[in-house]
Design a protein around this nucleic acid. Sequence first.
DNA 1: CCTGGGATTTTCT
DNA 2: GAAAATCCCAGGA
Length: 195
Amino acid sequence: MAFFIMSKLIRLKENLYKQNTFKLAKSLLGKFLVRKIGKKILIGKIVEVEAYYGLHDKASHASRGKTERTKLMFDKPGLAYIYLIYGMYNCLNIVTEKKDFPAAILIRALEPISKFKMKTNGPGKLCQALKIDRKLNGENLITSKKLYLAQDSKTKIKKSQIISAKRIGIDYAGKYKHKPWRFYILSNPFVSRGN
DNA sequence: CCTGGGATTTTCT
DNA sequence: GAAAATCCCAGGA
């Protein structure tokens, strides 16, 4: 299968995941999500993310404490936290911050690089397109053969191209619903909404 | 442009 | 038993 003209993809290293959640969230824009299934490789460029930060963030699953479901948010950075939402869709998050500090970055939209059968302009949809489900919950993106993040030396997103906005679907979160913790690439047609 | 409801099932109260 | 980090479709302005 012919891939697009693109310089070599290099997997993101452990150190990168150790930076502050908000810096990391912005720096993930323009990076690539890679999913390997047997010999098949599916690749998408990250164009939209949201940050969920700390125990006080009422929009975060971690705000109600550490449970069987949310314990990964309290784990070490670089793991995948995948959960089922509304009984129907999976959502993929990257765990961030030190162990015991709950935070994660939700991957909300991808620009397709390989050919997908389904759309990737939403957190539930991109998981369908890349066949990501809870079987991959806890996958270590630094070492996993099935799921990881990568960068290419050419693709750089300028600061002026990064938009901050309110997060989506969290109207119950009190004052935290106003936090501008959603980040996306200006004018990118694959952003889920508001572009 | 916007609002509202239904699908579907796990998780927590 | 209610809520949920979604999506799609219908209907109204």
